[in-house]
Write a protein that binds this DNA or RNA. Structure first.
Lengths: 112, 112
DNA sequence: CAAATATATTATAATATTTAAATATATCTA
DNA sequence: TAGATATATTTAAATATTATAATATATTTG
């Protein structure tokens, strides 16, 4: 079941707006009207993205009067954001020469 | 542009079958008929998922006769898989008492 | 309490993703 | 060269995601 949950986390964060929200929350508590300043989308759309993040248990909030103050709840997000920020210049080296599998020799030259 | 590319990588790997394929390729070269053994989906569906991974530049293959031998190409995948495998027992600690933002005091008790 | 503010929810239409089925292509083998 | 094998592509239908618009709720303030 953990696997499905992880896939669900990935799905949930696979959106530019939600990544942006999470990056901001990784630094700071933010309420929705703070977010309206750096996100160029409607308030109700922001709320929908926040709902998606809440349903995946990635964020939570506390209430200050009519503000809802969101913060990051899930520690995996910190690590995922860090990986997403890293630079990865090169491709992995291809497999060593001629690995062998049950079905084939895997000997051939690489194609494209 | 890098941001969008990262979101695209996330979207592409946000599927249980594609995660599984990547996990296998992180260990080993595999051809499609190898994959037919551990994936319980049709061959053409496997090919479709492989195409998605190729289009995101995450994998590549070389050709051995009629086999196509896939391997992992993108180094970020290694790091992402590692994070996905890690255990994260606890939630992050909530924000310290009473942080302040432009818009509010953020003082209140947490709600749920 | 009425109006204003901050945020959430619902409905809907547009778009994207997914699977399944059918077909196509390339390589090998007899 | 005619299967047979391994894999890919295309099409179509089902489902999911997204943004927008409209409306609802809760809190504060006058």
């Amino acid at each position: 079941m953990k696997h499905l949950n992880r896939v669900n986390i990935l799905k949930t964060i696979s959106h530019p707006v939600r990544i942006r929200i999470l990056e901001e929350l990784a630094n700071d508590v933010k309420c929705v009207s703070d977010m309206e300043e750096f996100l160029e989308i409607s308030q109700s759309n922001i709320s929908q993205h926040l709902a998606a993040l809440r349903h995946a248990d990635l964020i939570d909030y506390f209430v200050d009067g009519r503000l809802r103050c969101y913060f990051l709840k899930s520690p995996i997000i910190i690590d995922l954001l860090e990986v997403l920020k890293k630079d990865y210049p090169d491709d992995l080296p291809g497999p060593e020469c001629c690995p062998v599998s049950r079905k084939g020799t895997y000997a051939g030259e690489r194609n494209r």
